[in-house]
Nucleic acid binder design. Structure first.
Lengths: 188, 188
DNA sequence: GAGGAAAGCTAATTAGATTAGCTTTATGGC
DNA sequence: GCCATAAAGCTAATCTAATTAGCTTTCCTC
């Protein structure tokens, strides 16, 4: 019935692109409208406000990360799985900086927030990647949180240019994977 | 010579307080002026613009963190030092969320940025804390980065309410310290 | 006690987000 | 094929926050 123009999905996809190109902070209603070839107020037919738009980008991004991670983990276990997991997330953060920032800096709106569901799917994947390490049940929560912390911290530091030294961040990343792998074996 | 009113230092200190109470994103010229009992445009006599204000808060916060960490590390080594280091940073992040966010999300303006100098002092402290582990020189950079990543990631996740499960984040924190301690011993 | 710079102020501008209310267009039902 | 209607756009207007321009006051130096 509608005038076949943009859908909410289209709008959010364009916003995600824009966020990657200009930065999540720079994501603005005006720029987005311009990119879509419509006037700013027309955006309100698709999202309720800027917060809703950003939340939408975050949810979509977290969902995408989940898919990529799930794919990457197929048929892998142990250190192989850990490497695939961290590598996939790092690569996502590098190729989609705006979306990564969106996914990990957006507050949850409540217990039925679809962003929470998407996050939980990612956490399930982390949990699956750790399966081969034979970690005790009561330690699993901590192990998962530690890994999330490490990934997020690394991504954050890399994005904010926090690494001032000359060593290649990629080397650090490999070192970190070894470090975690060794640590998880010892936790068993 | 000036009309003895506010100094840049006062303004930035008030901004830091405000950031902790309302959130770094919510730090606004209007709110700050109100808190200081002056009109908004008067702030421009002390800072060049909002970016300068935020950068000032970040630099001050990073400097404070450096002091606290330096104090906490006195007379400690090995795991004891590691615990003090991580504990201090975590506690700073919890008691000063706005300032912590400022310190770790602000872009450097150049090679002579005082924020960079303050960051480097913190990094020196991390380096000192690791001294007792006898880590090889070429691994030191990676070890430091790994620790920074972990701390930042943990703080980020805790602030953005990323931990949805019921286990106490404090327990995870202790677990993480053990995990890192074990890992560093093994890296020797 | 005059001069000048610092620290404030009011008024005005600009950029963005958002709201109100009008217009156009694709369809589903006749 | 015709029309009612809801979706998708648009223009005009409002509101908030940052910022700039230009004026005023106060305090220190000489």
């Amino acid at each position: 019935m509608p005038r076949t123009g943009l859908s909410r999905r289209d709008v959010i996809a364009a916003a995600a692109e824009l966020a990657d190109e200009a930065g999540f902070q720079q994501l603005t209603m005006g720029l987005l409208a311009q990119r879509l070839g419509i006037r700013t107020p027309s955006l309100y037919k698709h999202v309720t406000d800027l917060a809703d738009l950003k939340h939408g980008v975050a949810t979509q991004a977290m969902t995408d990360v989940g898919e990529e991670v799930r794919d990457a983990l197929q048929g892998r276990s142990g250190r192989d799985a850990l490497t695939a997991l961290l590598g996939t997330m790092r690569s996502y953060a590098l190729t989609h900086p705006g979306q990564y920032a969106a996914a990990n800096s957006t507050l949850l709106t409540g217990p039925d927030d679809p962003l929470l569901a998407a996050s939980n799917r990612v956490i399930d994947s982390i949990s699956a990647a750790l399966r081969g390490y034979g970690i005790a049940d009561e330690d699993m929560v901590h192990a998962i949180r530690t890994i999330r912390s490490t990934i997020h911290g690394f991504a954050l530091l890399q994005v904010t240019d926090g690494f001032q030294w000359n060593a290649d961040p990629a080397d650090t990343f490999d070192w970190m994977i070894q470090f975690i792998d060794r640590g998880l074996r010892a936790s068993r």
